Simulated assay, not measured.
Amino acid sequence: MAATATKLSSGHEMPAVGLGVWRMDSAAVRGLIHSALRAGYRHFDCAADYKNEAEVGDALAEAFETGLVKREDLFITTKLWNSDHGHVVEACKDSLKKLRLDYLDLYLIHFPVATKHTGVGTTGSALGDDGVLDIDTTITLETTWHAMEDLVSMGLVRSIGISNYDIFLTRDCLAYAKIKPASLAEKYGKTPAQLVLRWGLQRNTVVIPKTSKVERLEENFAVFDFDISVEDMEKIKALDRNYRTNQPAKFWGSNLYA
């Protein structure tokens, strides 16, 4: 039975259910990938930082060779690590080589931060002399995104997206992006606002969105015809940064929520 799929802005379909390979032991990858394929999985979520792209690639190559599945039937995602923001094309090609693929269905920026380069594909997290993550301030997220866009025109990647971005960085990305990032909201065929409102409703809270635009009135009310999966509810919850937008301390000088 075919799995439900969501159409990305690029026109490609992403199966709504996928298998993540994070913390998957390298020795177990082959068996798990093949078992997942036999069970009907067609979407696999990888990352350079998971350090098992090569094992996933071997498992997929064997699946193709034995006729278990065809490449065009799969949706393969992997991610650019922080230390490779200044080497996007090289990092993508390195992941493709390890995965033994000619193209990626989706390539994500893993985290919205560029750190000291430690060698393509090595996924290092170098610390500065102060023991804090060594951030490369010469590379902007906009520069990284435009390099990601180049991957699409080169035919190395079909769709690009972002991961672990907060709402403010996401808005910034939408402002400078020529190719808009694939998003969780896109997965459900809804706007980011609708996804956030639905998240609130599924937490059994009352949501009271404010708008002065008539079209938004209708959009904000159209949140009763879909459900966010338990897995995606947890992903959204994990974005919590204990940040309060209405902070009286800023204008009264007294922190009521301390």
Rank of each mutant, 00 (worst) to 15 (best):
L19M: 13
L19D: 04
L19E: 05
G20E: 03
V21L: 04
W22H: 12
W22T: 12
R23T: 13
R23F: 03
R23D: 00
M24A: 13
D25M: 06
D25W: 05
D25A: 15
S26W: 02
S26L: 12
A28P: 11
V29N: 05
G31N: 09
L32V: 14
L32Q: 13
L32I: 14
H34G: 12
S35R: 14
S35H: 13
A36L: 08
R38S: 15
R38I: 07
Y41C: 13
H43L: 05
F44G: 02
F44K: 05
D45L: 08
C46T: 03
A47C: 10
A48F: 00
A48T: 15
N52S: 01
A54W: 07
A54T: 07
A54D: 04
A54L: 08
E55R: 04
L60K: 02
A61H: 09
A63Q: 02
F64P: 10
E65W: 06
T66K: 15
L68D: 13
L68R: 14
V69Y: 05
K70T: 08
K70W: 02
K70Q: 11
R71G: 14
R71P: 12
R71T: 14
F75V: 09
I76G: 08
T77C: 11
T77A: 03
T78C: 09
L80K: 10
L80N: 07
W81Y: 13
W81V: 00
N82C: 14
S83K: 06
D84T: 13
D84F: 06
H87T: 07
V89G: 01
V89W: 08
V89L: 14
E90F: 10
E90R: 09
E90L: 05
E90V: 13
A91Q: 01
K93I: 03
S95Q: 05
S95F: 00
S95T: 07
L96A: 01
L96P: 07
K98M: 05
K98H: 11
L99G: 02
R100A: 10
L101S: 03
L101K: 02
L101M: 04
L104P: 00
L106S: 04
L106C: 10
Y107T: 04
Y107G: 03
Y107P: 07
H110Y: 12
A114R: 06
A114V: 01
A114W: 03
A114F: 04
T115V: 08
T115M: 02
K116P: 09
H117G: 12
T118K: 03
T118H: 03
G119V: 13
G119W: 15
V120G: 14
G121A: 10
G121F: 01
G121W: 00
T122D: 04
S125M: 12
S125L: 14
A126R: 05
L127D: 06
L127V: 15
D130W: 07
D130S: 12
D130E: 12
G131Y: 09
V132A: 13
L133Q: 13
D134N: 15
D134K: 11
I135D: 09
D136W: 02
T137L: 12
T138Y: 02
I139V: 15
L141V: 04
L141Y: 14
T143R: 11
T144I: 06
H146W: 10
H146Y: 06
A147H: 13
A147F: 04
M148L: 09
